[in-house]
Design a protein around this nucleic acid. Structure first.
Length: 210
DNA sequence: ACACAACGTTCAGGATAGTA
DNA sequence: TACTATCCTGAACGTTGTGT
């Protein structure tokens, strides 16, 4: 994995120079160029109190928009856990986050070891997957998308969605044929579906009239 | 082939800021 | 003030690699 710095330089290992303390723990110095996080006494941070119940097996649809993506609002970025908000760049990352990256990518440490190290530093207990998840989100945040690739992204997305749309109606046509033996053109099915949807919206549910 | 460990991903739940 | 959107955490799940 390589990162791209905010300057656009590719970095295989964008780590600060580290040292090893007496207990053998790798210590990343707090570089003066980092965006300094709000001073907080980590030793007094409360342990996470999340009481998550068993994960529901059935998906819910409540927070999804018409594209199936979570509905978004402007990012406030003010909600933060014990490690603070997930940094948007390596430069923004605090020493704990840098240590996580260092131990994971450079030292090849296991997550349990990383978890133990971070817990020792912060005095906060974390779940077994918290740091893994945080690391994955950091990696996503750190990617700098080339400006000239942006229109390509939009283009490709549009192409694929159009392709999916065509495939979708064709599959529906196939499904109808499989069920009742009647083959309808995909475009006719699409048109009929629009009519039915309108009826649902204006006068309640569609009645299956045979 | 099977069991197990480690990992990455997904998603529910809680917290909190913004908005009507 | 109630509601909504967003964020972070952590449990559950699926995948992959390794040992037997």
């Amino acid at each position: 994995m390589s990162f791209t710095s905010i300057n656009g330089d590719n970095m295989d290992l964008p780590f600060a120079k580290e040292s090893v303390n007496a207990s053998g723990t790798t210590v990343i110095p707090e570089p003066s160029t980092f965006k300094v996080k709000e001073e907080e006494d980590k030793s007094e941070l409360p342990a996470p109190t999340t009481a998550t119940t068993k994960r529901a097996r059935e998906k819910t649809q409540a927070t999804e928009d018409e594209n199936g993506s979570p509905a978004k609002k402007n990012r406030t970025g003010k909600k933060a856990g014990p490690l603070g908000p997930i940094p948007m760049s390596y430069e923004e990352a605090g020493s704990e986050d840098r240590l996580t990256i260092e131990m994971r990518e450079k030292d090849g440490k296991q997550w349990l070891d990383i978890k133990a190290a971070i817990e020792e530093i912060t005095g906060t207990k974390f779940g077994n997957t918290t740091l893994k998840g945080r690391y994955a989100r950091m990696k996503a945040n750190f990617v700098i998308f080339e400006k000239e690739h942006e229109p390509i992204l939009l283009d490709v997305k549009k192409d694929i969605e159009q392709k999916f749309e065509i495939e979708k109606w064709q599959k529906i046509a196939d499904g109808i044929e499989a069920r009742c033996g009647q083959k309808y053109p995909a475009t006719a099915i699409q048109k009929k579906y629009k009519q039915l949807s309108k009826r649902v919206n204006t006068s309640g549910p569609v009645v299956n009239d045979g």
